[in-house]
Amino acid sequence: MNRMIAADEFKVPDRSDNASANPTLPLTATGLTYSAGGRTLVDVGQLDIRTGAPTIIMGPNGAGKSLLLRLLHGLIEPACGDIVWAGRQAGEAERSRQAMVFQRPVLLRRSVAANIDYSLKVHGIARGTRAGRVAAWMEKAGLEALARQPARTLSGGEQQRLALARALCTEPDVLFLDEPTASLDPVSTHAIETLIRDACARGAKIIMVTHDLGQAKRLAGEIIFMHRGGIVEQSPAKKFFSSPASGQASAFLAGGLVL
């Protein structure tokens, strides 16, 4: 399995020429398992994610994609195994340099601006500098006109843009995305993908779950294909889509049910 990725394969700007710019990577997970109700739901022997273009996790429903994302971000505790970020054990300090956006955005019952402000505040950004950053990020997300509006009155697309802006405003090294556009229209999806590209261009590592093959093709530097809690294949995107290494991935790409 070739985990090394050539720069010319990326469709998004790549920072591999400046790999040391992201102090959180590489990520190495070893012997990672997660069980619930006596069933093993995730069992990953070895996983390496390096700096560079987005890593997209694909696979059929129930493959354990979201669980893997949560394990890596530290939202749930693995039954066993090790997660190491650039030589450091995963923990609170590492998580503070990461952010995550969920399929259904969890917006605080506050205004749009206050949602972004909250994220900055809990990341220890001084009060004096927050207002400027809040304004800048609302503008990047195209939400400046809605700054005072209660966040939960926004449309679905606006809500997800806000969730993404709120995740990005602390300039995380790693951004986890769990099907962020699953229920959005194409225009909203495009706005989200633009924000993701910008983040990637600034050097943030994107690790994202999606069911949308087109989106994976547009964004991915590499694909991790999961099935029944394990990683079946981890390949550069171009190779994955043209000649997947595994039968399950072939079936998945062909639109068949992967049993």
Binding site: L75, E92, R95, R109
Partner: peptide, 26 residues
């Protein structure tokens, strides 16, 4: 509803109390 998001923000369980009280104010 909030616990995953707050954990993602790095807010501990006890530190999440003021946030939850404020957001549950109504």
């Amino acid at each position: 509803e909030y616990s995953e998001q707050l954990r993602s923000f790095g807010v501990s369980r006890i530190a999440s109390v003021p946030t939850l009280l404020w957001d549950g104010r109504y």
